[in-house]
């Protein structure tokens, strides 16, 4: 999709860089202690959630709190079909189910704006959680489900693939005319409509695309947890964390989102094991501090530094 009239270095650098990273990530499990791989799986999960969330909510400024719904649907697909389907098929189906759900939601909700849209998406996650619960209690007569477990290395490669696909999708949408159109929607939806962009179709498609990899990640991660129930699968935390991580790292840069997801996951791990009794307090203070002093997130730090440097040099 990258247009040919771009000057070469602009895409060459990220291409080479990502190639190196891919090679490294693919051979790394041979040399790492097993727990590091488990940590990486968690980081991957949050990168997928955060970058996927930002593909739609970043440029359009429609703050979605439906991530937990898409992630949870993937988890349930894996729990229900995991013992009859091969692992890969369950992941693909998890992504597909999320895609279809997001299409449906998009069709019914994207005419809502601002706060109304946010509340609607949050309500949607809760609605799905309670519907699944109702189904389990009254139809299947059990609440929890056991998920077929898969070894950590396999999960690692699956998550790595999903991360790469997510990043590729995010990169191409951002650098295409569709990405520009989404940005325009965020600036002024009416104007974009008048220019001749099919605003609704574009929004719904971007929303659905952002759900695909959340579902796939859910289907993959469920195999690590071995037991799930509706409140585990549709935990509202999975709706809030991506928003937080994106803001923490910087919503408008893909590398910012990656840094946000990675930094917060590592921070949570470190605080949780070193200060189990002060975890929530410290975590909260750090979040507030970053948002207060770095409104552009960690990615904004670089821009701030260079601005500050210029300022000093001029003096």
């Amino acid at each position: 999709m990258s247009s040919t009239n771009n000057p070469a270095p602009k895409w060459l650098f990220p291409l080479v860089l990502s190639f190196i990273i891919i090679i490294l990530a693919a051979v790394i499990p041979r040399f790492l202690p097993p727990y590091t791989i488990i940590s990486l799986n968690d980081i991957f999960m949050y990168i997928v959630l955060t970058v996927s969330w930002a593909v739609f909510s970043g440029p359009t400024r429609y703050i979605s709190l439906a991530s937990a719904a898409f992630f949870g649907i993937g988890i349930y697909v894996s729990a229900v079909l995991g013992n009859v389907l091969p692992f890969l098929a369950a992941i693909a189906l998890g992504g597909l189910a999320s895609f279809l759900l997001a299409l449906l939601v998009g069709l019914s909700s994207l005419r809502l704006r601002g706060m109304y849209f946010t509340i609607f998406t949050f309500g949607l996650s809760e609605l799905i959680r309670h519907s699944v619960l109702w189904w389990e209690v009254n139809i299947t007569r059990t609440v929890g489900r056991l998920v077929v477990s898969v070894d950590n290395i396999t999960v690692y490669y699956a998550m790595l693939t999903i991360v790469l696909l997510t990043l590729a999708m995010a990169y191409f949408i951002k650098n295409s005319k569709y990405g520009l159109a989404l940005l325009a929607i965020g600036e002024s939806e009416e104007a974009t409509d008048h220019i001749g962009v099919n605003v609704n179709a574009l929004k719904i498609l971007a929303f659905a695309m952002s759900a695909v990899f959340m579902g796939a990640a859910g289907a993959t991660m469920a195999t690590r947890w071995t037991y799930i129930d509706p409140s585990i699968a549709f935990n509202p935390l999975f709706s809030f964390m991506p928003v937080l991580m994106a803001i923490f790292g910087g919503v408008h840069r893909i590398y910012g989102q990656i840094i946000g997801a990675t930094a917060l996951t590592l921070l949570a791990d470190m605080l949780l094991t070193k200060f189990p009794y002060y975890y929530n307090l410290l975590y909260g203070i750090i979040l507030v501090a970053v948002i207060l002093f770095l409104p552009q997130g960690l990615a904004g730090l670089r821009e701030r530094m260079s601005k500050w440097r210029k300022h000093v040099l001029v003096k």
Partner: peptide, 22 residues
């Protein structure tokens, strides 16, 4: 050694593996 699983399954599984492996 006591870790907090935050009443979250994902965290619990991960921390148990940390206890075992690390």
């Amino acid at each position: 050694i006591i870790y907090d699983d935050k009443s979250d399954i994902g965290t619990a599984v991960k921390l148990v593996e940390k206890l075992v492996l690390e």
